[in-house]
Design a protein around this nucleic acid. Structure first.
Lengths: 221, 221, 221, 221
DNA sequence: AATGAATGAGCATTCATTCAT
DNA sequence: CATGAATGAATGCTCATTCAT
């Protein structure tokens, strides 16, 4: 792997584990066994590293918004896969959300990019909800669509960080991803049309099982 | 006002405006026109200031959980007033939530206190939901109560911080409080029983009006 | 007791236990439950406290140099009582010797007083040795008297501090006083005349017993 | 010279001249014309500098304990060269002994290392005395060997520091080294066997001459 | 590409001391 | 006599960043 990529990889890992605030550029260099000078050969400054990580994150997000394969999966099935994917990204870049305010306050350019993507997400999410509404999967009046879309996004975005503040040890595992998907489903529950209820229940049951298995596995370790 | 209180007040203001990370103890002292030594006469260290602010915050939270006046208000009416109060607190101590992870990671004692209050909130919210369910205001199965309670708490807790990341200028005003209450109502909407729907709609309309008025006022300024 | 005396007493105790460097004027005031301002009402500064302690110490030293009761004790017996007294003083003011260099470097006036007393001690010790030599208790040429006197003084002066550096826990107890007297006797041993040897041995045996008793007592605790 | 070595050298000089307490890391950096950051690039903290100086000191001590060349020198001759070497070390690291208590109290690891070396010195000194006794150079009963060994060590260890407290100007010169050797000899004098007396006197005379020459030289300056 | 010594402004904190009350 | 808030220079130390090699 190229040094530049190794720096990004190590920074992401260290940021996620100890928080961006606690990790200095010297920590990153030492962790990789390279000199601080070399790190600054590849990146202009610490912000630059964070921007690169953000770029990576953004491409994952865009990827997650790919249209669904209408022939091989139901729309609810797609939705769940989408949520799952999003939460994986939130997990992968959890340091970013833990310090989102600080990071955006320090870097106007990054903020502009971030806000732009957020707006795009709002639009796409709303249109997805509208499709679900139009084909009778959910029952939802127009005026609530934008709000619900943003609420779901917020739950996904805040989930990992919020969970880590609710526990005395502060550790978060991948388990929380399944819990996060379930939480979005629960939030969604009230809007599901009767005709889609059976499939919805099936999906929920299936995720509950995944969570149980994952929790058992974690406990074993 | 006593110097100790002035330090707490100034710290809270500066933390909210610039972020806890960006504000040093010397900034606080200079802002108040006192010497750094004097600040340390009143507080052992920066953490101590944050803990004092947290204590203040905690007492607001506890205050917000007072039982409702059953003779003079409906349960939905109480709920809205409660949400309103909670969001005011979130606004008042928004720096705390913006840096929650960092702050709790650095201070185990504070984390313990925070987690304890969070658990108490979960219990009380769940029991409030159960009352609403039992008197027919909402329709909600037992297994969903805990999750819904926590989701609502999460929306309230993350609302201010999340909003400030969604806008290019990053500023959040008290308007967002009305929006926050409305968002919780929307999330709640799917669970409201038919018989409570009229009152629910009335309350929502009323809050939409408050928001419109407030937004107009802000715009004027 | 007067506040001034309480400050001196507390300072001496705290300095001895934690070292002068580690004890601030605020520590002393807090330990006594008085205000720092009050401490500075009684003393101009920290140095002033140390000077007062020194004055007390000096009077003990002068006291120890009282002539001996020629009718009721032998000269060797007197010498041992004298050594014992000196070492008690060294114990009582052990912080002073532990930081002697620092303290004298910071306070020229104190240094002048200290040096003056030291010179007086040298003269008096030498004349005492001369008496012992003249009455045949010790065998010692003139040219060695001054040196031996100073060596003995040095052993007494450094004893407590030196012992505390030789042990892993750094604690020194009153036991070390008996050991100190014995060490001076051992150093003296080579110069004792044959005719005084029996009494010398008797005194040494007696002190060894005292040490054994004291050590046993310490162990019990 | 490497910067790290320059820092050690400058620290040792400044500590010796003004006392460890009075010299801050910023003083050292300013004295060398380097930034405080650079100093902390080479050393983790002030303690680390002191530990490095101590390591240097320890290697000198170990060096001084090399066995003597039985073919080319007498045992008394060796002893004097050894004492001379030890006192040179005490001179070179005099700040260390002046603040020994403080330094060891603040640094448990250093204390452990120091105590270990002290114990080794006691053992080696005692066995050296036993050799001198066995070949008839000194007359000394077994039970006094350990005590005499420690007394001599104490005189060597405290000599420089003690001398600096005995003079009104507080300055100590290399002259004191010769005086120190002579003082140890005087302390030893009482135990020398008759057959070794002539050589002992010769050595003493020789050192007295060295001292006289050195004093004259110092006076000239 | 990479090194690693060097920078320097800044940080949290300390503490002997002052002074109005 | 006594209080306790206030001072401010100083301390040990950090860290993003630079630059000659």
């Amino acid at each position: 792997m190229k040094t530049k990529d190794r720096i990004i990889k190590a920074s992401l890992e260290l940021f996620n584990e100890h928080g961006e605030r606690a990790i200095t550029t010297n920590h990153i260099a030492a962790h990789l066994g390279i000199s601080p000078g070399n790190l600054y050969y590849h990146f202009r400054n610490k912000e630059d590293i964070i921007r690169c990580i953000y770029t990576e994150y953004e491409s994952y997000i865009v990827e997650a918004f790919r249209p669904y394969d209408v022939e091989h999966e139901s729309d609810l099935g797609f939705m769940v896969r989408f949520l799952d994917g999003m939460l994986q990204v939130m997990w992968r870049y959890r340091f970013f959300y833990a310090n989102l305010g600080d990071i955006l306050n320090r870097d106007d350019e990054l903020r502009a990019r971030y806000v732009k993507v957020q707006e795009k997400m709002d639009v796409q999410s709303a249109s997805a909800l509208r499709i679900l509404r139009d084909n009778g999967t959910v029952e939802l009046e127009d005026i609530y669509i934008a709000d619900l879309a943003q609420t779901l996004k917020m739950i996904v975005a805040c989930w990992i960080g919020f969970q880590s503040t609710q526990k005395i040890d502060g550790t978060v595992t991948k388990n929380e991803i399944y819990q996060g998907v379930l939480r979005v489903l629960t939030t969604f529950r009230g809007y599901i049309a009767d005709k889609a209820r059976p499939e919805f229940d099936r999906i929920e049951t299936q995720y509950r099982q995944l969570l149980k298995d994952s929790a058992a596995e974690t406990a074993e370790i």
